[in-house]
Amino acid sequence: MQIFVKTLTGKTITLEVEPSDTIENVKAKIQDKEGIPPDQQRSIFAGKQLEDGRTLSDYNIQKESTLHLVLR
């Protein structure tokens, strides 16, 4: 499925993911596309910070959902 990741600069990245993917996985995909190390990424969805060990389905993130990426 496709999800979108919006950065603070307003750029939107499209990722191909599975509901079973962990947040860690997703951060690795963002690193592949953007070169941002996962330890600098904070992902926010529906106002909640997403934890690395959880999966997209844990957070009820579905296709075409938009995550927000904040850098630390």
Rank of each mutant, 00 (worst) to 15 (best):
M1E: 01
M1Y: 14
M1A: 02
M1C: 05
Q2M: 12
Q2V: 15
Q2I: 15
I3S: 01
I3N: 01
F4D: 01
V5P: 00
V5I: 12
V5S: 00
V5C: 04
V5M: 03
V5E: 00
V5Q: 00
K6R: 11
K6V: 15
T7D: 06
T7C: 08
T7G: 05
T7Y: 11
T7E: 05
L8K: 10
L8W: 15
L8E: 13
T9K: 11
T9M: 08
T9V: 07
G10L: 02
G10Q: 02
K11V: 09
T12P: 03
T12D: 00
T12V: 14
T12K: 07
T12N: 03
T12C: 12
T12E: 04
I13Q: 01
I13E: 02
I13H: 04
I13K: 00
I13Y: 08
T14D: 02
T14V: 13
T14Y: 06
L15N: 02
L15Y: 02
E16F: 13
E16Y: 13
V17C: 04
V17E: 00
V17I: 04
V17S: 02
V17H: 00
E18K: 14
E18Y: 14
E18R: 14
E18F: 14
P19A: 09
P19N: 04
P19R: 05
P19I: 09
S20D: 11
S20K: 07
S20R: 08
S20N: 12
S20L: 08
D21H: 04
D21L: 04
D21I: 05
D21W: 12
T22I: 04
T22K: 06
T22R: 05
T22P: 03
I23V: 09
I23F: 04
I23N: 00
I23H: 01
I23K: 01
E24H: 11
E24F: 14
E24V: 06
E24C: 06
N25D: 12
N25C: 08
N25M: 15
N25Y: 11
N25T: 14
V26Y: 04
V26D: 03
V26W: 01
K27E: 02
K27V: 08
K27D: 02
A28P: 02
A28S: 11
K29P: 03
K29R: 09
I30W: 03
I30Y: 04
I30D: 01
I30M: 05
Q31K: 09
Q31W: 15
D32G: 08
D32H: 11
D32S: 10
K33F: 09
K33C: 07
K33T: 11
K33E: 09
E34Y: 13
E34N: 08
E34T: 15
E34S: 13
E34R: 05
E34V: 15
G35S: 05
G35E: 05
I36F: 11
I36H: 09
P37N: 09
P37F: 10
P37M: 10
P37W: 13
P37R: 10
P37D: 08
P38L: 15
P38N: 08
P38V: 15
P38E: 10
P38H: 12
D39I: 09
D39E: 13
D39W: 14
D39L: 08
D39H: 12
Q40L: 11
Q40K: 10
Q40V: 12
Q40D: 10
Q40P: 07
Q41T: 13
Q41A: 10
Q41R: 04
Q41L: 14
R42C: 15
R42W: 15
S43L: 15
S43E: 10
S43D: 08
S43A: 15
S43Y: 15
S43V: 15
I44R: 02
I44P: 03
F45S: 04
F45I: 06
F45V: 05
F45N: 04
A46I: 06
A46R: 13
A46M: 14
A46F: 15
G47I: 05
G47N: 07
G47V: 03
G47F: 05
G47W: 05
G47Y: 06
K48P: 04
K48M: 13
K48W: 08
Q49A: 12
L50Q: 01
L50I: 04
L50Y: 02
E51P: 01
E51F: 06
E51V: 07
D52T: 05
D52I: 05
D52K: 01
G53E: 09
G53P: 04
G53I: 06
R54N: 09
R54Y: 13
R54L: 11
R54K: 14
R54Q: 09
R54S: 06
T55D: 01
T55S: 08
T55K: 10
T55R: 08
T55G: 01
L56N: 02
L56I: 10
L56M: 04
L56A: 01
S57E: 11
S57P: 01
S57G: 10
D58V: 03
D58T: 04
D58S: 14
D58A: 04
D58G: 02
D58N: 03
D58C: 04
D58W: 12
Y59G: 01
Y59A: 02
Y59N: 01
Y59T: 00
N60L: 06
N60C: 07
N60A: 07
N60Y: 06
I61T: 01
I61K: 01
I61D: 01
I61Y: 00
I61R: 00
I61N: 03
I61H: 02
Q62V: 13
Q62N: 08
Q62T: 13
Q62Y: 07
Q62R: 09
K63R: 11
E64Q: 10
E64V: 00
E64A: 09
S65N: 08
S65P: 01
S65W: 06
S65G: 05
S65I: 04
S65L: 02
S65M: 11
S65F: 06
T66G: 01
T66Q: 05
T66S: 04
T66M: 08
L67G: 02
L67I: 14
L67E: 00
L67S: 01
H68Q: 10
H68R: 08
H68F: 14
H68C: 09
H68A: 05
L69C: 05
L69N: 02
L69I: 10
V70Y: 12
V70F: 12
V70K: 07
V70N: 04
V70M: 09
L71K: 08
L71R: 08
R72Y: 13
R72W: 13
